[in-house]
Amino acid sequence: MTTQHALTEYLLRLGDSDIILAQRLCEWVGNAPALEEEMALGNVALDLIGQARSWLEYAAELQGEGRSADDLSFRRNEREYRNLLITEQANGNYADTLARQYLFDAWHYYLLQALCDSKDARIAAIAAKALKEVTYHLRRSSAWIKRLGDGTDESHQNMQQAIDDIWTYSGEMLMADDIDNLLVEAGIAPDSAAIKAQWQAHVSATLKEATLDCPPMDSYMQQGGKQGLHTEQLGYLLAEMQFLPRAYPDAVW
């Protein structure tokens, strides 16, 4: 495996995770429990779409097949997608959406912070830009975990259930495979062990403040998304997201 191949895969993982989570968040638009929440989710999704474009444009350039970020988003099937499994999980109730968001944001924040020091200057530039946005995402989602966790009996119960349900998908972000290891050696990607320690500290502190029980960190964790093996959720999501460009391939504004 060449560094360039590993880098392309790594960029797809970053970009695909952003775009899939953004698509999930957009499902709330028109449907959120409050107008302010709808704006917040739409804005978070917009930030993630912008970041996805930056990562996927870079991936497409490295692939050198003349494809654009849009081609990558709208013309690939499930098995070609490299997003984390946590990002494709269904919205569920509002606690489910926030639990998924918070666990992702905490990882995203520390990852981007480390990527600002990447030896790849373009990755460092995209990360520095994205980090400013994701800082707001994390601030908002961790506040909601505390409000609902330390809220009423009902909100506490729902939030605890949401954390317990999504937990098995939280470990994949922190696991390294050959691609990660190769890029760590090249100084392009950060060591996932460092991110893992920061993530675990943030999550256990936030859940404690939210009066929620933190599930065991060594629980069995689902994985496969980074290698293109997905849960049944992704196909339905792509069917909706890709319908228009697939049905009308030459459509332009």
Binding site: E36, M39, N43, V44, R139
Partner: peptide, 13 residues
């Protein structure tokens, strides 16, 4: 503060 996010990405309400 009413909302961390506002009418555009750059604003809060």
């Amino acid at each position: 503060r009413v909302s961390e996010f506002g009418s555009t990405a750059c604003k809060a309400l």
